[in-house]
């Protein structure tokens, strides 16, 4: 990065970036209005949702380098809080979100303190075990809907239910929350916390010996991450209006957060968004094209593309981009 900055004058480079960023932002805001196809609009909303959960995961998994494969724990808390609020008290689903977030933060402290001591795969496995525990407990608790699951309002009662026919409002709501999350991530990465997390990810023992309170900062990252993941769960529940143990706490969902981030580039600001923007449409389009055959070809194609990317760009698409930049810089020299 700094090596390149010395090669090109900083000011025009920054301007170029700003113009590019502004154009990308406008494109993101405007494209759903130009597409009349409601299905594509919904895919757009789902991209935002997947980008949200992957970006939230990115704080812990990417920036802090702690590969959690149990983030669905927090997602499920948010989704269930929303719909249980409706089931028990007839609240608008989104009103449950703060409770989901509070519960997730509490869980993150209880769960994070012991597990963040664990190294590498042991940490990943512990997070999986915790998420599975949550899934089994919910499945066996009739008061939480048991195996049947819980539903939102069958038909919208008021605007507060955030239940829309068009996917567009969801797209913009999810997008707005994503913007807040990305802004926070950007700010965090510039500051002391980003510096510490980079140190921890690089070489935790060295960072500790230099006096970085690693445990503490990993926990901070987990807290923010859990909070946003929970909010994602609440937003999901608001849109879909139903959650059961598998769709709220299923391990596949955790894995999808990880692969969206990994695909775009973990530990980069826009990596998860890029990953989600590739994976979700890929999944939906392959399903729309081949799903009805009943031959499973949907997942053969989807899986093969994931394999292909991991084979040729193990560091995700961010790596491809930096390789390309390096190549351009070399050529400019």
């Amino acid at each position: 990065m700094s090596a390149q900055a010395t090669q090109t004058p900083a000011a025009p480079r920054l301007a170029g970036r700003l113009i590019f960023g502004a154009l990308a932002l406008i494109a993101l805001l405007v494209w759903p209005l130009l597409v009349e196809n409601v299905f594509y609009q919904r895919v757009g909303a789902l991209v935002m949702l997947a980008a949200l959960s992957a970006s939230a995961w990115n704080l812990v998994g990417g920036y802090a380098g702690q590969i959690s494969i149990g983030h669905v724990l927090y997602f499920g808390c948010g989704a269930y809080a929303s719909l249980l609020g409706f089931t028990w008290f007839e609240w608008a689903p989104i009103l449950g979100a703060p409770f989901g977030i509070a519960l997730s933060l509490l869980l993150a402290v209880i769960v994070g303190t012991p597990t963040l001591r664990l190294k590498g795969h042991y940490f990943s496995m512990a997070t999986i075990a915790l998420a599975e525990l949550a899934r089994i407990i919910v499945t066996n608790s009739p008061v939480l809907g048991g195996g049947v699951g819980v539903s939102g309002p069958a038909l919208p009662r008021s605007m507060a239910d955030l239940s829309f026919i068009s996917p567009l409002p969801y797209y913009y709501i999810f997008g707005a929350v994503l913007a807040v999350l990305l802004a926070f991530t950007w700010w965090m990465n510039l500051g002391r916390m980003g510096f510490y997390l980079r140190a921890i990810r690089g070489q935790e023992r060295a960072a500790r010996s230099l006096g970085v309170p690693a445990q503490c900062y990993k926990l901070y990252a987990l807290l923010v991450s859990a909070g946003f993941t929970s909010l994602t769960g609440s937003l999901y529940a608001t849109m879909v209006g139903f959650v059961d143990p598998d769709s709220g706490f299923g391990i596949l969902l955790s894995v999808k957060m990880v692969i969206a981030a990994a695909l775009g580039g973990a530990g980069t600001l826009f990596g998860p968004l890029v990953g989600a923007a590739i994976l979700v449409p890929l999944e939906e389009v392959t399903n729309a094209m081949f799903g009805g055959d009943g031959t499973g070809i949907t997942y053969v194609v989807y899986g093969a593309i994931i394999v292909f990317i991991s084979r040729f760009a193990p560091g995700g698409l961010a790596e491809v981009l930096s390789r390309f930049q390096a190549w351009r810089a070399r050529r400019a020299n």
């Binding site: 590969i67 494969i69 692969i259 499973g296 053969v300 989807y302 899986g303 991991s310 560091g315």
Partner: peptide
């Protein structure tokens, strides 16, 4: 994949799992 970070392994083997499972279904 081993040249990349641990995440690449998750990505690669997860994709492989889907391919094997659904090719068998096919």
């Amino acid at each position: 994949v081993m040249r990349g970070p641990m995440l690449a392994q998750i990505l690669g083997t997860f994709g492989l799992a889907l391919v094997l499972r659904y090719a068998t279904l096919w």
